[in-house]
Amino acid sequence: MRSRFRSDPRLTVRMTVTLFLLGLLYVAFVVALVLLLKSWVLVVVVAAGLLGAQYWFSDRIALFAMRGRVVEREEYPELHAVVDRLCALADMPKPVVAVSVMEMPNAFATGRNPDNAVVCVTTGLLRRLEPAELEGVLAHELSHVAHKDVAVITVASFLGVIAGLIVRFALYSGLFGGRRDQNTAAVLAAIMGVSITVYALSFLLIRALSRYRELAADRAAALLTGRPSALASALTKVSGDIARIPTRDLRTAQAFNAFYFTPAAGREPGIERIFSTHPPLRQRVEQLARISAELGEAATPGRD
C-alpha cells in the first residue's frame, strides 16, 4: 500500500544504487573469506544467519539498545494522538509507539516495513517541543517508514557491522591467540586487511545515502504537514540542546546516529562532514525555508 507521503525518485535511485554497490561488495567479501578460510559453507551460513537476524529483529535490537519501551495510549495520549493524525493524513499503517527515558532530545524509527515499524521518542524530546514541532519530528520519522529507507539502512549497515566484528576478532586473536605458524598469521592478516577495506567502503556508501535520506524525510514531512517552519524550529531547538549535553552521555547513543532525527553529536561537522550520517543543520534549515517560501507559509514557526 502506498502512503500519501510525496514520492522521491531521487531517494529511490540512491537507495537502489547504494544497495547494488553494497551487494557487489558483499559478494566480493564473502568470496575473499571463502578463499582465505577455505570453508564456503561456514562463511555463507554465518553471514546469511546474521543478515537475517539483523533484518527481522532490527526493531527489537534498536529499542533494547536505546532503552525504549512500547507505550499504550493511556500512558501517552497526546503522543498517540499525533501519530494517529499523521498516519491518517499519510494513509499508512500506524506503527508501534515507544518512549525512551533519556534526557537527550531525539527520535528514531525502525522496522523492516510499514506493517512492522516502531517510532520511538525520548522523554527529553517530549519535554522540549511544542505540539507543532513534535508533529514535524514524527512526520519526519514516519516518512522514513513510508519510504522503507529504515529497512534499507538496516540491511546496508550489515556489511560494515560484520567487517568491523571480523577486524575486532582478528585483533583479539593477534593479541591473545598465543603462538601460531606463519601461514596462520598471514591468513589472519589478509582477512583483517580485506575486512578493513570492506568496512571503509561500506561506511562511506552508507553515510552518503544516510545524509540524503534525512533531507528527503525533512522534505516529505514538511509537505505532508504543510508547516516546514515548525520542523525547522524543532531541528534548531533539538540540535542546540544536544550540543549542551555532556559528551560522555552521548557516547552510547552515537552508534545509532544513522537512525536518529538529528545526530547525537556535540557540534556541527566540519571537514569530517563526509563521515556524518546527517547533513549540516544549516543545509536542512535552508531547505525547509525554501519549502516554506514555496508553500507561502507564514514565518511564525509554531502557528496553528
Rank of each mutant, 00 (worst) to 15 (best):
R2T: 12
S3W: 03
F5P: 00
S7C: 03
S7Y: 02
D8P: 03
P9R: 09
T12V: 07
T12Q: 10
G23A: 05
Y26D: 13
Y26K: 09
A32K: 05
L33M: 12
L35Q: 13
S39M: 07
V44D: 06
A47P: 00
A48T: 09
L50F: 07
L50S: 10
A53F: 12
A53I: 07
Y55M: 10
W56Y: 12
S58D: 12
R60P: 02
I61F: 12
A62N: 10
V71W: 01
Y76I: 02
V82M: 02
D84M: 09
D91E: 15
K94G: 09
V97R: 02
A98D: 00
M102H: 04
E103G: 10
P105Y: 02
N113T: 07
V118E: 06
V119Y: 03
V121N: 01
V121M: 05
T123G: 09
L125E: 08
R127P: 02
R127L: 04
R127S: 12
R128L: 15
L134W: 04
L138T: 01
V155L: 15
S157H: 06
G160Y: 04
A163Q: 08
A163T: 08
V167S: 06
R168Q: 11
R168N: 12
A170W: 01
F176Y: 15
G177H: 04
N183D: 07
A185V: 05
A185P: 00
V187K: 11
V198N: 03
L204C: 03
L205F: 13
R211S: 11
Y212P: 05
A216F: 04
L223F: 06
R227M: 11
R227C: 09
S229I: 00
A230N: 02
G240C: 05
D241S: 13
A243M: 11
A243S: 14
T247F: 10
D249H: 14
D249E: 15
D249P: 02
L250A: 10
R251C: 06
F256E: 13
F256R: 09
N257V: 03
Y260L: 15
T262N: 08
T262L: 11
G266S: 15
P269L: 14
G270A: 09
I271S: 06
R273A: 14
F275V: 10
H278Y: 05
R282A: 15
R284F: 03
A289V: 08
R290S: 15
T300L: 15
T300I: 14
